[in-house]
Design a protein around this nucleic acid. Structure first.
Lengths: 245, 245
DNA sequence: ACTAATAAACGTAAAAATGACGTTTATAAA
DNA sequence: TTTATAAACGTCATTTTTACGTTTATTAGT
């Protein structure tokens, strides 16, 4: 008789950060390292997204927020639930067979996947109990489970979303240059944008505010710094109903 | 002692259809009618989305497809998984308390919500074993569970999606008029569009193909019929990376 | 102090798209 | 034949986009 399935509910968090120096869109991953109890062989030696079982009394959003806080100490970051992954075989390995009351059960894990956007400098990776590490999206390490796929789908969702809403500023420091914004768009979308046209377009936005400050410590002409005003953006009654098919 | 939670996994399907005659964006709902076994009182008399428990050996997508097929007989419809709903209290009522081996368990139901886009005329509602009925999105009946919220969130996702991709044609008959498309956009987005400008914009698309046919049976000047070519749309190398923030 | 190198910042002109309208046309019903 | 009506076409000013060229401010090297 085929084993019965027992359901398990978890959240997984794709944490995006952007490094303005290397111009790299990064994902925060944690190390997974397991040895066999008997042979001391290494069973897995790869990286995974942070995730956790959803507690009985918490909502899915609360669960994701909790996981992020445990990992980074941060709350109030931009968060989006983008997809549920629950193929019957998605975590299939021998460890998922469990026995209850002399009956064999097969564990099926449904994960609700979120992505978070945060400022890289807000996370202290050197002092992280999970040994969390940033990896460039284009140079991901060996990933456990179906986490490669989850990251790819998060990236796709992010691509769409950042074209329609100014969420890109969640990934940038409070003070940024126009070129920072352009570089980040190019990293996310994988395209090249004409700098002069992009610059004009962005500067004309009312919610992109020039500061009385310039870059310091650069060995070229220092760039003007700007900030993003979420307040002004919201006040603009943002119904940009542009049909773009 | 608080009861333990047992997980239950389901899919719910928001089925959208569009009536070109009444210019109404509709949702397909089924009747829920339950009497108390003892008193014959009516316990619930409302409508719900179609949904079902996810079988052990099927994927989430397969489950949604199965539910739609049972309801409408249709396969290969446009389908999108848009959100998971799983608040601990979302289906909370007395029926969710179950007893296993003399222990009290509380049932927590996670539902993976999909929406489908289909052509109204493909569904025979008069001959439907679930007593399915179309309801205008703006005049929904009393809804069970949290299905009102699920429909609203499906609608929001549809709004965003139809601005970025030509999924609107999934809701229209194969042969449609320019005004049909405009009316549908207006229904979905809840806005008014200038007919002359919209017409010009749409006719200029290579994938909107005029047919050698006109409307019949109308008591006014019959409109030109068009079709949408998905092939041409795809071939256009569709990277409309328009930043619209 | 001058010069070279470089990225930042500004500029321009043609083309395309949009917004806001007015006008003409084909059809069925009266 | 006339009338009502929605379909379809047209126009023009404005805005946005595309595709480039030029100038400027700064640091580093001589």
């Amino acid at each position: 008789m085929a084993p019965n399935k027992i359901l398990n509910l978890s959240v997984d968090c794709v944490v995006f950060g952007y490094d303005t120096n290397t111009k790299s869109l990064n994902v925060l991953l944690i190390k997974r390292y397991l040895e066999s109890e008997t042979t001391k062989d290494v069973l897995v030696d790869d990286y995974v997204l942070t995730g956790y079982h959803v507690y009985d009394d918490e909502t899915l959003d609360e669960s994701a927020t909790r996981v992020l806080k445990e990992l980074t100490g941060l709350t109030n970051q931009y968060k989006k639930q983008f997809k549920a992954f629950g193929n019957p075989d998605r975590l299939s390995n021998e460890k998922d067979l469990i026995w209850v009351q002399n009956q064999e059960f097969n564990l099926r894990t449904i994960t609700i996947a979120y992505y978070f956007l945060l400022k890289t400098e807000d996370v202290d990776v050197d002092n992280n109990k999970y040994e969390a590490k940033w990896f460039p999206l284009r140079e991901l390490p060996e990933l456990g489970f179906d986490h490669q796929q989850i990251i790819e789908e998060a990236h796709e969702d992010l691509k769409t979303k950042c074209l329609a809403e100014p969420i890109i500023f969640e990934l940038l420091p409070d003070k940024f240059t126009i070129n920072d914004v352009q570089d980040l768009y190019e990293s996310i979308l994988g395209i090249e944008i004409d700098n002069r046209n992009f610059r004009r377009k962005l500067i004309n936005k009312k919610y992109i505010i020039p500061l009385d400050e310039k870059q310091v410590g650069v060995s070229k002409k220092p760039a003007q710094l700007y900030m993003f005003s979420k307040d002004i953006y919201k006040k603009m009654y943002h119904k940009n109903y542009l049909i773009n098919i």
